[in-house]
């Protein structure tokens, strides 16, 4: 058996009792060894898709396979060969760090020592706390332990459901650094996140909203499809600025973007024209500059 695996999803649909489609004809091909991001807000269908791949949920329609194993027929093989980290912390809170790790190694029929090289980087950071109960770890430490437990049987595919939600920026960065190192070891990883800025850390991403895939590609490919001229604008009165830009003749969309407002236009307009419009509305402290779209601009363009 090779140590990398592709993931194939063809026209998968799933709905729950309320008949609203959680997944609507979703198709995706994830290449062996890829670090692939599934990016979308809460309720987009990310968890449903990951649970189908983890064989915890059956699709209503469509087929899905990991490394050629079918999620319906080969669920036993899949379960013993993938690592899965659910969105909610699911380790034993009353067991210590090392007890959790040994427990997961044992149920997968292996020993911690056997694949220790795979988790060494991560476990080294946890080692000072190995006698501490999992329930008493900080959020970032819990995530690291959960990742160790998901890796301990050397899975060919890693499925991570929102591993960085609610985690502070330092722990988040450390977590993504770890995923980068796992990629170098050839593990195919599917990771979901509601945070658009994490897209740039993936090889390719799928943008998902209301059970449908809006777009798939490398972050740069997706951004390159954004065709509207885009400007970052700020003045001393941001709230009034947003409202005034909405009534400007050449406006396509207006979205607040931190210190600036992103103004997309229906056609190219000289910045001087926008400046004189804003001056006529008595704005002060004008700052207008052309900017490159981000993945969030692209996502919003696909939503409207």
């Amino acid at each position: 058996m090779n140590n990398t695996a592709n993931i194939s999803i063809k026209e998968v649909s799933k709905s729950y009792q309320d008949n609203i489609a959680a997944l609507d004809q979703v198709s995706l091909e994830i290449t062996a060894g890829e670090l692939f991001g599934l990016i979308g807000p809460d309720g987009a269908g990310k968890t449903s898709l990951i649970r189908i791949l983890a064989t915890l949920l059956l699709p209503d329609e469509g087929v899905a396979s990991l490394n050629g194993w079918d999620v319906r027929k080969d669920y036993r093989t899949i379960r013993s060969n993938i690592g899965y980290m659910p969105g909610r912390f699911s380790l034993y809170q009353d067991l210590s760090v090392e007890e959790n790790l040994h427990f997961f190694a044992t149920i997968f029929g292996t020993k911690v020592e056997e694949n220790y090289d795979l988790i060494k980087d991560i476990y080294d950071q946890l080692a000072p706390f190995k006698k501490r109960r999992a329930g008493n770890l900080s959020g970032g430490m819990k995530q690291k332990l959960a990742l160790c437990c998901a890796l301990i049987h050397k899975p060919v595919v890693l499925l991570l459901d929102e591993p960085t939600t609610g985690v502070d920026p330092v722990s988040r960065k450390e977590f993504w650094d770890m995923l980068g190192r796992l990629k170098a070891k050839g593990i195919t990883t599917l990771v979901s996140t509601p945070y658009m800025d994490e897209a740039s850390l993936c090889d390719r991403v799928a943008l998902i909203q209301k059970g449908r895939i809006l777009d798939v590609g490398s972050p740069n490919e997706i951004i390159d499809k954004y065709k509207h001229p885009l400007l970052a604008v700020r003045t001393d009165d941001m709230y009034r600025l947003i409202n005034d830009l909405r009534t400007f003749d050449f406006t396509h969309t207006v979205f607040p973007f931190g210190e600036y407002v992103h103004l997309s236009l229906i056609q190219t307009v000289w910045p001087e024209v926008i400046a004189s419009y804003l001056l006529s509305k008595e704005h002060t402290g004008l700052d207008i500059q052309a900017v490159k779209p981000t993945i969030e601009d692209a996502f919003m363009e696909l939503m409207i």
Partner: peptide, 29 residues
């Protein structure tokens, strides 16, 4: 966890109340 458009609608609500004089104290990761 909210989508990027809704998130911005939320921030516009914040701008609006701040503009009307309310003070907004916000924690975030």
């Amino acid at each position: 966890g909210v989508d990027p458009i809704t998130r911005r609608q939320f921030w516009e609500m914040i701008y609006k109340v701040a503009n009307e004089g309310m003070t907004v104290f916000v924690t975030t990761h």
